[in-house]
């Protein structure tokens, strides 16, 4: 049995001093893909933000066998776990799409040849060539969504957490994103209540309810089957 990539043990998430999710236990192996579902306001986004270190939590957060506690641990985690925000505007603060796509690789000081390769790959995957020199504030919501996903991919994190990645997308872009997720070989955690996406992906679903009661389906055997298919 390989070591889990990311593990949450007795993980409770707090907002305004109040626990909104309690005692979650999630184990995610390398290459595994899960969906986090649940009604609005249940704490799906807070869970993602807690993993990234933006929201307080109690319990254990373990990345590749090492506990994540200090600021420097979260820095390492953010290098390995890319987060695509629910609101794409949160990730668009540079003047143009090109600057936006190069923001993270520059922060992580990736070698130029790797950046160039990743940049081209991402631009081609999401068909962004015509948008590269456009100011980010002039993009449509769907375009912003694609760019926010693309700007995480340009630094090639091992895992992605995507918060409502298909929200506000037209049919064409919906398929573009859904196909990308389905084909990706990365470890993925997709937060969504898009039922069509959930059934399209066919991954294990962790359902968060208002009582923090967590159900997981399909069962493990089915999960393995899905992973093989995926």
């Amino acid at each position: 049995m390989t070591e889990p990539f990311l593990e949450l043990r007795n993980f409770s998430v707090y907002r305004g001093g109040r626990a909104i999710l309690t005692n979650l236990n999630i184990v995610l192996h390398r290459g595994e893909k899960i969906v986090i579902a649940g009604v609005n306001g249940v704490g799906k986004t807070s869970l993602a933000e807690a993993i990234l270190g933006f929201v307080p939590f109690k319990g254990e957060l373990i990345l590749e066998g090492k506990p994540v506690k200090e600021k420097k641990d979260f820095k390492i985690l953010r290098r390995k776990v890319g987060y695509v925000f629910q609101n794409p505007d949160n990730q668009l603060f540079m003047p143009t799409v090109r600057d936006e796509l190069l923001f993270a690789p520059k922060n992580y000081k990736l070698p130029e040849e790797i950046v160039e390769k990743l940049f081209q790959k991402v631009v081609n995957t999401f068909n962004l060539t015509h948008l590269l020199d456009r100011p980010t504030f002039k993009l449509s919501f769907g375009q912003k969504r694609l760019v926010s996903l693309a700007c995480v991919l340009t630094y090639d994190p091992e895992m992605l957490i995507l918060d409502e990645p298909t929200n506000g997308l037209d049919r064409e872009n919906w398929f573009k994103v859904a196909e990308f997720l389905k084909k990706s070989d990365k470890t993925l955690m997709v937060i969504t209540h898009d039922r069509e996406l959930i059934s399209f992906l066919g991954w294990r679903v962790i359902y968060l309810s208002s009582l923090s009661f967590v159900t997981s389906y399909p069962p493990k055997e089915e999960l393995k089957e899905n992973l093989r298919k995926g």
Partner: peptide, 15 residues
């Protein structure tokens, strides 16, 4: 949210 977005994309304290 934007500042969190910057940190999520690897921005350090300086940026």
């Amino acid at each position: 949210d934007i500042l969190e977005g910057m940190f999520a994309l690897g921005a350090g304290n300086r940026v």
